[in-house]
Amino acid sequence: MDEQQALSAFAALSQETRLKIVRLLVQVGPDGMAAGAVGEAVGASSSNLSFHLGHLERAGLVRARRESRSIIYSASVTGLGELIRFLLQDCCQGHPEICALVLDPLTNPCACEPEPAEG
């Protein structure tokens, strides 16, 4: 990913509805969601949703596929991974242990488990 692509991705994510869409699609996983369900989940009208999904797709952060009469959207793991790599490519000036603090929640499956309740 070059700097212009990163700027496009960050610009896409800098809007509240688009950030909600990406986070939702990451949670849903590779099966994705129909556009209408995405709109309902984030509270966006169809025309507004179409605008936001188009912006995210052009930025390489979501993908669309047709299934019968529906368009299914999913997060682009490749695009999101490239953005993370862009941020970390010059990480830590030779001290990879610092980057481990950032990457551990992504690579440690236990990091996704909820914290135990107190008391």
Score class of each variant (00 low, 15 high):
residue 46 S to M: 02
residue 84 I to W: 10
residue 71 I to H: 13
residue 55 H to S: 10
residue 99 C to N: 04
residue 82 E to D: 13
residue 46 S to H: 07
residue 59 A to M: 05
residue 99 C to E: 12
residue 97 E to V: 12
residue 72 I to W: 03
residue 81 G to D: 12
residue 58 R to I: 01
residue 52 H to Q: 14
residue 62 V to K: 02
residue 45 S to I: 00
residue 64 A to R: 11
residue 54 G to V: 07
residue 86 F to R: 03
residue 78 T to H: 10
residue 84 I to R: 09
residue 49 L to D: 02
residue 103 L to T: 15
residue 45 S to A: 14
residue 56 L to F: 08
residue 39 G to Y: 10
residue 71 I to N: 13
residue 100 A to G: 02
residue 52 H to F: 03
residue 84 I to N: 01
residue 49 L to A: 06
residue 94 G to A: 11
residue 89 Q to E: 13
residue 41 A to C: 07
residue 45 S to L: 06
residue 89 Q to T: 03
residue 98 I to W: 02
residue 73 Y to D: 04
residue 57 E to S: 08
residue 77 V to E: 15
residue 72 I to M: 09
residue 43 G to L: 05
residue 55 H to G: 00
residue 58 R to W: 01
residue 45 S to T: 10
residue 48 N to F: 05
residue 91 C to Y: 05
residue 76 S to C: 14
residue 103 L to W: 12
residue 81 G to F: 06
residue 78 T to W: 01
residue 58 R to T: 11
residue 73 Y to G: 02
residue 94 G to Q: 05
residue 81 G to I: 03
residue 98 I to P: 00
residue 78 T to K: 11
residue 80 L to S: 03
residue 58 R to P: 04
residue 60 G to F: 02
residue 87 L to H: 04
residue 52 H to I: 00
residue 57 E to R: 13
residue 92 C to N: 11
residue 44 A to L: 05
residue 89 Q to N: 09
residue 100 A to V: 13
residue 97 E to D: 15
residue 92 C to Y: 04
residue 89 Q to V: 03
residue 46 S to I: 01
residue 50 S to N: 11
residue 73 Y to W: 15
residue 62 V to S: 08
residue 73 Y to H: 15
residue 86 F to E: 04
residue 66 R to G: 10
residue 41 A to N: 09
residue 46 S to Y: 01
residue 49 L to W: 03
residue 72 I to Y: 02
residue 69 R to I: 05
residue 49 L to F: 09
residue 87 L to G: 15
residue 54 G to I: 05
residue 74 S to G: 12
residue 96 P to F: 05
residue 65 R to N: 03
residue 67 E to Q: 15
residue 72 I to C: 07
residue 51 F to N: 09
residue 79 G to R: 09
residue 94 G to M: 06
residue 47 S to V: 09
residue 76 S to I: 02
residue 100 A to S: 12
residue 86 F to P: 02
residue 70 S to C: 01
residue 39 G to V: 10
residue 46 S to C: 00
residue 86 F to K: 02
residue 57 E to F: 00
residue 93 Q to P: 00
residue 76 S to Q: 07
residue 69 R to P: 01
residue 40 E to R: 14
residue 86 F to C: 02
residue 62 V to P: 12
residue 77 V to S: 14
residue 75 A to L: 12
residue 52 H to D: 13
residue 43 G to V: 04
residue 75 A to S: 12
residue 56 L to W: 06
residue 43 G to A: 07
residue 82 E to W: 00
residue 96 P to T: 08
residue 75 A to D: 03
residue 71 I to W: 09
residue 74 S to A: 15
residue 62 V to N: 07
residue 59 A to K: 04
residue 75 A to E: 03
residue 58 R to V: 07
residue 72 I to A: 04
residue 40 E to D: 14
residue 83 L to P: 01
residue 60 G to S: 10
residue 59 A to P: 06
